[in-house]
Amino acid sequence: MFSLAGLVSAPDGGFLSDGLALFTGQELSLREAEVGQATRQPKAALRLAHWLVEHGRLTQPQTVTGPDGDVLRLTPSPDHRLVNVEKS
């Protein structure tokens, strides 16, 4: 999976997945202000990408534990093409 999906920098300092939609139909969005310092974001994004591939397309908000023990809320966008991540 990771050879086909990656992370790109977002204008707000966060990250967007690139290619995750091939597996789940959705991309992942982590904003710096929501998830924390940029050095933690790629680790969180990797864990969440794994979670999404294992659990499938997200249709309802869900909470998960991030790699540093933070509770993260995953929320699908209105068109369900993006999963937004924020601290819960």
Results as ranks from 00 to 15, higher is better:
1 M>Q: 15
1 M>G: 14
2 F>E: 11
2 F>H: 09
3 S>L: 14
4 L>V: 13
5 A>D: 01
6 G>K: 05
6 G>N: 03
6 G>R: 01
7 L>C: 01
8 V>N: 08
8 V>M: 13
9 S>V: 06
9 S>W: 09
10 A>N: 02
11 P>G: 07
11 P>W: 03
13 G>K: 05
13 G>F: 03
13 G>A: 12
14 G>I: 01
15 F>C: 04
15 F>S: 00
17 S>G: 06
17 S>D: 03
17 S>C: 03
17 S>T: 11
18 D>Q: 10
19 G>D: 06
19 G>T: 03
20 L>P: 00
20 L>A: 03
20 L>S: 01
21 A>C: 07
22 L>G: 14
23 F>V: 07
23 F>C: 04
23 F>S: 04
24 T>W: 03
26 Q>P: 06
27 E>S: 06
27 E>V: 02
28 L>P: 00
29 S>V: 05
29 S>H: 06
30 L>W: 01
30 L>D: 01
30 L>C: 07
30 L>P: 02
30 L>S: 04
30 L>R: 01
32 E>W: 05
32 E>C: 14
32 E>G: 08
33 A>F: 10
33 A>Q: 12
33 A>D: 11
35 V>C: 07
35 V>E: 00
35 V>A: 05
37 Q>V: 11
37 Q>S: 12
38 A>V: 11
38 A>M: 11
39 T>K: 12
41 Q>V: 03
41 Q>K: 05
42 P>S: 04
43 K>L: 14
43 K>E: 15
44 A>F: 04
44 A>E: 05
45 A>E: 00
45 A>M: 05
46 L>W: 08
47 R>N: 12
47 R>W: 10
48 L>D: 01
48 L>Y: 04
49 A>K: 02
49 A>T: 05
52 L>C: 06
53 V>K: 06
54 E>S: 14
55 H>W: 08
55 H>A: 07
57 R>A: 12
57 R>N: 11
59 T>G: 11
60 Q>I: 13
61 P>M: 06
62 Q>C: 15
62 Q>R: 09
62 Q>A: 15
62 Q>H: 14
63 T>R: 15
63 T>K: 13
63 T>A: 11
63 T>Y: 08
64 V>R: 03
65 T>M: 15
67 P>R: 05
68 D>Y: 12
69 G>Y: 10
69 G>E: 05
70 D>L: 12
70 D>S: 15
70 D>G: 14
70 D>Y: 12
72 L>G: 04
72 L>I: 06
72 L>V: 08
73 R>H: 15
73 R>S: 12
74 L>A: 07
75 T>W: 09
75 T>G: 08
75 T>M: 11
76 P>Q: 06
77 S>L: 03
78 P>M: 09
78 P>W: 05
79 D>K: 11
79 D>E: 11
80 H>G: 10
80 H>I: 07
81 R>W: 14
82 L>V: 07
83 V>S: 01
83 V>N: 00
85 V>I: 04
85 V>L: 03
85 V>C: 00
86 E>N: 13
87 K>S: 15
87 K>H: 13
88 S>E: 10
88 S>T: 11
88 S>L: 10
